[in-house]
């Protein structure tokens, strides 16, 4: 079973993640954990020092963490973005699209199911900043646009 799924080459951050409140009052930490009610934008002034942002999903049905992830990536965050908590295989491809590159689920994934979920979508309709070319871009290659 897969306890931790990670799509990065670098060494994981060593220190445990601190809460957003703690991070904002002792700003030397390199790892922080966002809860659904936290404002991801409060971290934007400190992105350079961050190596790990954990986004907690206390319940898989609470989708605020998807927006938090995109906001961080849109602001240029390059470090590890890890989904933790009630993370399920059927959410993996959507989470990847929102910028997550690391997954630490409460209950380990079945490796086959995880692989199938990650490889599921050959095409995507939206541009989400994950580097994938949306269908509309394939329909209208850049040199034909304007």
């Amino acid at each position: 079973m897969l306890d931790h799924l990670r799509f990065r080459e670098d060494e994981p951050a060593g220190a445990p993640a601190v809460t957003v409140d703690a991070f904002l009052t002792q700003t030397n930490a390199a790892a922080v954990r966002i809860e659904p009610g936290d404002d991801a934008r409060s971290l934007l002034p400190f992105l350079e020092q961050l190596r790990l942002v954990e986004v907690n999903f206390p319940s898989f049905g609470d989708g605020r963490g998807y927006s938090s992830a995109r906001i961080l990536r849109e602001a240029g965050y390059q470090g590890e973005l890890r989904a933790v908590g009630d993370v399920l295989v059927d959410q993996l491809s959507h989470m990847r699209r929102c910028g997550f590159d690391s997954f630490l689920p409460e209950k380990p994934f079945d490796p086959e199911d995880a692989q199938a979920a990650l490889n599921r979508w050959p095409e995507v309709y939206q541009a989400t900043g994950d580097g994938r070319q949306p269908i509309w871009a394939k329909r209208h290659p850049a040199n034909e646009r304007d």
Partner: peptide, 8 residues
Amino acid sequence: SFHPEFLT
């Protein structure tokens, strides 16, 4: 359709 940010 399948907008990854807005499925939950």
